[in-house]
Design a protein around this nucleic acid. Sequence first.
DNA 1: TGTCTACATTGATCCAGGTCAATAAAGTGC
DNA 2: GCACTTTATTGACCTGGATCAATGTAGACA
Lengths: 249, 249
Amino acid sequence: MTQARVITPLFEDFAKVEHHHQLACQSCALSRLCLPLGLHRDDLTKLDQIIKRSAGYKRHQILFEPSSTFKTIFVVRSGSFKTTISATDGREQVTSFYFPGEFIGMDAIYQQRYLSTARALEASSVCELPYERLQEFSATIPELQNQLMTRLSKELSSDKNLLLSLGKKTAQEKLISFLLSLSQRFSERGYSSMSFQLTMSRGDIANHLGLAIETVSRLFTQLQDQQLMSIQGKEVTILDLPALKHRCG
Amino acid sequence: MTQARVITPLFEDFAKVEHHHQLACQSCALSRLCLPLGLHRDDLTKLDQIIKRSAGYKRHQILFEPSSTFKTIFVVRSGSFKTTISATDGREQVTSFYFPGEFIGMDAIYQQRYLSTARALEASSVCELPYERLQEFSATIPELQNQLMTRLSKELSSDKNLLLSLGKKTAQEKLISFLLSLSQRFSERGYSSMSFQLTMSRGDIANHLGLAIETVSRLFTQLQDQQLMSIQGKEVTILDLPALKHRCG
DNA sequence: TGTCTACATTGATCCAGGTCAATAAAGTGC
DNA sequence: GCACTTTATTGACCTGGATCAATGTAGACA
């Protein structure tokens, strides 16, 4: 119960600190996870001019979709998002979830149009990085260019790991891998890695992992029965981390 | 039969033109698909200095693996490669196939170590782009930086599409999507999009699509029976493109 | 030219996880 | 607080594609 309070919604505390949303990168609590990482103070000041802190997004609100014109890469400031990609017949695949400090929309650089649709999972806010300006700046700030490449490469890495999950893992292994990767990301953001709130629905998780909702639900009960973790609604508590790590492949 | 001759191995003709393998980018037949795209002539000359044209790789030979130290990004010059990622217990997922002009190893930028293992599918050759030098050069050649980001983003896009395939498509849809994407890539390289040689085994295709070899084999027979395409060994001929497009989701 | 070995096809059987259906919680708005 | 809607759980049953098994085919190399 006490853990739950601090993480609903994610980074709520940071959002509150920002009385208006033009808080400079220098004083942003996220800077250690975000674009500013490794940038010099003066470079950051320059960058600060072009970054637009957007108003908040409500649960389910669309951040962008394939029909939107591509101008910016988004960074999650608070809350969380999901991206989905659609087949021609309307079937959708949830490709990623995004938490504070993570970049959304990088797959649009090639072809200069968003490939996917991004939706807020809860009340959330973002910073907008105008891509063209970012490119100009990268020419004079090598560390910025490095930062962008690293982010792209990081997303590539996690997609490849997801490919391994979807292609080769059992339903239980998929779910455990997913939960452990969430745990890892929460811990990087200063939250408990052992107890956290899911911001996405069972449906989103199932879809992301190529499973049916019912399978996810059954696996949750099964993991509880095996004393590996406890799940009450959206709250996940990891009980036996070594056993879980052992079971995720 | 006539089509088959020109594509075994892929870009064989280019390989022959290069009597030694220090052919400059400017005179390389691939330049239109490769890094040089959009670069100024003088920039290309500079870049040429740092690109190492490596000796050939034999079928099944390893280009890199996770234990290799990351220093370079590879560009396929001739032939083709596959990359695989491994679970802790040894299960492998074929994450991508790479053809001439395509970049291998970009997922290593984050963490500075290769995530996957790359193997030649046939007698092949590559150019090596030392990553650190590439970074230095990007600072002064904005178009190079743009080129790299675009390549990363392109790989991201194709991985997301594969996620859709693995997560939401039926076996037949997966296979058709895969074959059509190959067809597209062959056509970009100046080959027939209607008739081409598979350079990978049934096992590689099955693994890549999260299927069993037997399923792939059965689907091939089924696609032939339905007069949608003809498959004799490694040679694929597309007979009814509209019908195939309709069936791939 | 024949022998090996790896790769591919085809058939029979099985099962992990999907689908369908009913019920139960948990939000959400009035 | 109550109605309504969305989300989650649980059970019964079914199926697409995996697995097992046998056979066929094609390179590789002596």
